[in-house]
């Protein structure tokens, strides 16, 4: 192994309500990946409040940096590259992580890289399976994103489809809130759906028959709202099962079709909603029928974390010699 392969990258991720810091050796060896979730702070507001998140990041971040370095067993001066999420995400939270990272890089005289959070999600797969290389179709599905991305090789991305309104996880959270599940609703919805009837409520399959690979989930929320108004005694289990059936059907159909259309044999599913058991089961079952390998990195790498950010930074720095000036600022609507 060359010296470059053992160099240490510090990654920082603060695009939403997770404060995360990671230390990576080379491009794929995770020495530490600490994630502090603020979810409890935001639960009482029924969603992420950007100002609450920003205030919390500025206090928590130094602790999480310390913890990550201690966990990795490295001294801060051994860090040779600093990478932080520059977007997409909430601008206030992004600024805190980006400024902290730039301050560290500047003082350490280490190169700095601002990282695209979406590319980070795809690198969850690289961290888990460095040998299972592109090409593949990527499905990024979370509370903030629903996107199909064709990946011919790392560093090259084509957006095949994206949501025109709510992200899948966002729709699930909003519906969950509407039927009194609290925030966030994903895990609870998954659990309730186990004992519900997915055919109980005839919900639409938004854009399910459209030839495009774009998604739309906000209509689903309205459909549930009208149904619940008319049927106030509908069992929550049945609502959960019917909602998930609709979301999972659409995600499964479009993802597998996109994979086939782009002549890929693998579908890599990342983002917080990749944790959903119903989505996993249906994608694997239908993927197998169609000869498509459906791969899910471990959940800890699927949800927002800094290891994936460090992994992109380390890759782009080595592969493309990329580094950013200290004038780089967040881009809340960054895409590919």
């Amino acid at each position: 192994m060359t010296g470059a392969d053992s160099s240490l990258t510090l990654g920082i991720e603060t695009s939403c309500d997770e404060t995360s810091v990671a230390v990576l050796r080379g491009e794929t060896e995770i020495l530490a990946n600490i994630v502090y979730s603020q979810v409890d702070l935001h639960a009482r507001y029924g969603g992420v409040v950007p100002e609450v998140a920003s205030r919390n990041h500025v206090v928590k971040l130094p602790y999480i940096v310390d913890e990550a370095l201690a966990c990795a067993g490295v001294q801060v001066q051994e860090i040779s590259l600093v990478a932080a999420t520059m977007g997409p995400g909430l601008v206030g939270p992004l600024l805190v992580g980006l400024c902290h990272a730039k301050g560290m890089a500047y003082a350490l005289r280490a190169p700095f890289l601002g990282v695209n959070h979406l590319e980070g999600h795809l690198f969850a797969h690289r961290l888990h399976s460095p040998d299972v290389v592109p090409p593949f179709m990527g499905l990024i599905v979370s509370g903030g994103h629903t996107m199909l991305v064709d990946v011919p090789r790392y560093g090259e991305y084509y957006v095949v489809g994206t949501t025109v309104d709510d992200a899948a996880g966002e729709a699930i959270d909003k519906i969950g809130k509407m039927i009194g599940m609290g925030y966030p609703a994903g895990a609870k919805m998954d659990e309730l759906a186990d004992s519900g009837d997915p055919k109980a409520i005839p919900l639409p399959r938004p854009m399910g028959d459209s030839p495009s690979f774009d998604f739309s989930f906000s209509g689903l929320k309205t459909a549930v709202l009208y149904h619940v108004r008319k049927n106030p005694r509908e069992r929550r289990e049945d609502i959960a099962a019917s909602v998930l059936a609709s979301v999972v059907d659409v995600l499964t159909k479009k993802s597998l079709e996109a994979t086939r259309r782009f002549h890929r044999h693998r579908l890599v599913v990342v983002g917080g909603v990749a944790a959903n058991a119903h989505l996993r089961a249906q994608l694997v079952a239908e993927g197998t029928q169609r000869g498509i390998d459906v791969l899910f990195p471990p959940i800890a790498l699927c949800t927002d974390n800094a290891a994936m950010i460090a992994a992109v930074g380390a890759f782009r720095h080595r592969e493309f010699g990329e580094a950013h000036p200290l004038s780089v600022s967040p881009n809340p609507s960054l895409s590919f």
Binding site: S54, V96, C99
Partner: peptide
């Protein structure tokens, strides 16, 4: 400005943490 204050403080914390300034 809340955002302005956090820009200065986060940058300062990053520098301070990196070199124990």
């Amino acid at each position: 400005s809340f955002t302005g204050l956090r820009i200065g403080l986060a940058t300062a914390k990053g520098m301070s943490q990196a070199r124990r300034i």
